[in-house]
């Protein structure tokens, strides 16, 4: 089953076309990585899927249902969770409360969950137990990223959108996040992530799509994308030179 389908979506800011006629389908239980240089339209596409932005044309389907006209909070209630490129945490709530408020929100449309249990479990799972009662504003960026991830997972989503989840994390934490995502995908969670960390994308994702200047350049398995000459030219090749 296709969990997320993006159909011919275009977004314009004034004269700039940030996303240009992009179509993409993500099957259930897949981890899809979206790569592309800065300004390629990755985050804009995320905002369209999450309901922060309305596309100029095109539609977004979640589990077969057209959600294009739904506001963000109604999409969340249909099982869509996300994190943000620039951290959006509830800074004056504690870590546990950050997870709790999401779990409580979920309980409003799914009475079967126990918010406090979900929050405590996630705290422990993400290694946030020690800082559970600290206010999030007082924590380092990497920990705040984990809080954001935990908050998204507390919703028990069907589709998880991660915007640069690995930035600010240590190498070890990144690997752990990758493993956790694969485990969750195995349980049926669909993940779409925007990422600059290429090894992370290529090792974690089942499928990879590349955007450039708002256009979908290619989409396929990590190997296909890695060997695509356009990708090598525009992205990987330049990165390798820069690294060398």
């Amino acid at each position: 089953m296709t969990m997320l389908e993006i159909r011919k979506v275009s977004v314009r800011f004034g004269g700039l076309t940030a996303v240009d006629d992009v179509s993409l389908a993500v099957p259930e239980g897949t981890i899809m990585g979206i790569i592309g240089p800065n300004g390629a339209g990755k985050t804009t596409l995320f905002n369209v899927v999450a309901g922060i932005l309305r596309p100029r044309t095109g539609s977004v389907l979640l589990g077969g249902e057209d959600i294009t006209r739904l506001p963000a909070h109604r999409r969340a209630r249909r099982g869509l969770a996300r994190t943000f490129q620039r951290l959006e945490v509830f800074g004056t709530l504690s870590v546990r409360e950050n997870l709790l408020v999401a779990a409580e929100s979920r309980r409003r449309w799914d009475r079967s969950t126990q918010p406090a249990f979900v929050a405590d479990e996630l705290c422990a799972e993400l290694g946030l137990g020690e800082v559970a009662e600290s206010l999030v504003d007082t924590l380092p960026t990497g920990t705040q990223r984990l809080v954001e991830l935990g908050r998204a997972l507390a919703l028990r989503p069907r589709l998880l959108l991660l915007d640069e989840a690995s930035s600010g994390l240590t190498e070890l934490e990144t690997i752990q996040v990758g493993e956790r995502l694969q485990r969750l995908a195995g349980q049926g969670l669909t993940v779409v992530l925007v990422e600059h960390d290429m090894p992370f994308v290529l090792s974690t994702c089942g499928r990879v799509a590349m955007l450039d200047h708002g256009v979908l350049v290619t989409e396929g398995t990590p190997d296909e994308v890695r060997n695509n000459p356009v990708v090598q030219e525009a992205y990987l090749g330049r990165n390798r030179e820069a690294a060398a």
Partner: peptide, 24 residues
């Protein structure tokens, strides 16, 4: 209560609150 947390969440980040299903 959870209503209090929801209010603070909305104040701290309206975008994140919307993305966990809180209606502003």
């Amino acid at each position: 209560s959870q209503y209090g947390r929801r209010i603070i969440a909305l104040r701290d980040s309206e975008a994140a609150a919307a993305c966990i299903g809180i209606s502003a």
